[in-house]
């Protein structure tokens, strides 16, 4: 099933196009990397896909079955945006349940368990009562990823998620994402420069070669 379809996307900043006629299909249950040199508009492509930017021309279509609350996104170096945020780690990760809970519903026991499991999976359970600003860059990144996972998305979009992580954490992260895709049927798209390391876990690579895109299947 095609989750998201991009057709003939053209987009640029000021008067300079950075993406020209890019088309791609995102299938359900894939682990995809978007890669390419600096300035190849990888982040821009993700933002166009997520509706955060509007293309000059072309279309982005999501399958009707994919509700808005079933997509979660972790931007590039997400945690550095608001390092003085006064939340505890567990408070931040719990907020991943907000789209499902709406304005008034209380947290269920399953959601509390999911938060605990996810925090343990990223190795932050012991630090759950620390303030998010007191964590290292890599730990903050993990907390933001945990928050996105807790949302239980059908489509998980990650922009350079392993930045700041040590080698062991990166491998553990790729294994975890692969498990989400293979065992839980979720779809993961991530921007990465570390293709060599991630390649073994991926289903497909969308390679942007500056203004153009080539689809590489692994």
């Amino acid at each position: 099933m095609i989750l998201c379809s991009l057709r003939d996307i053209v987009f640029g900043y000021e008067n300079e196009p950075v993406i020209r006629n890019v088309s791609a299909d995102i299938h359900a249950g894939e682990f995809i990397a978007v890669s390419g040199p600096n300035g190849a508009a990888k982040t821009t492509l993700l933002k166009l896909m997520l509706g955060l930017l509007k293309p000059w021309s072309g279309t982005v279509q999501f399958t009707a079955e994919l509700g808005r609350s079933r997509v979660s996104y972790v931007p590039q170096q997400a945690a550095s945006f608001n390092s003085g945020f006064p939340s505890k780690v567990i408070e931040l990760v719990r907020s991943g349940c907000f789209p499902e809970l709406g304005l008034f519903r209380r947290f269920s026991r399953e959601q509390h368990e999911l938060v605990e499991e996810t925090l343990k999976a990223v190795g932050l359970w012991e630090l759950r009562n620390r303030k998010i600003g007191d964590l290292s860059g890599g730990q903050k990144q993990k907390a933001c990823i945990a928050r996105a996972i807790v949302q239980q998305p059908d489509l998980l979009v990650l922009d350079e998620p392993v930045t700041g992580m040590d080698a062991a954490s990166r491998i553990h992260f790729y294994e975890w994402m692969q498990q989400l895709v293979k065992q839980e049927g979720r779809t993961v798209i991530m921007v990465t420069h570390g293709l060599d390391e991630a390649q073994a876990y991926l289903d497909r690579v969308i390679y942007l070669e500056g203004k153009e895109e080539s689809d590489v299947s692994i």
Partner: peptide, 19 residues
């Protein structure tokens, strides 16, 4: 609106994507 405000204050793009 404390929940959407929390998400908005933390990061606008992730808030927008999550609805």
């Amino acid at each position: 609106l404390r929940r959407p405000l929390y998400s908005l204050t933390f990061e606008e793009d992730t808030a927008a994507v999550s609805g």
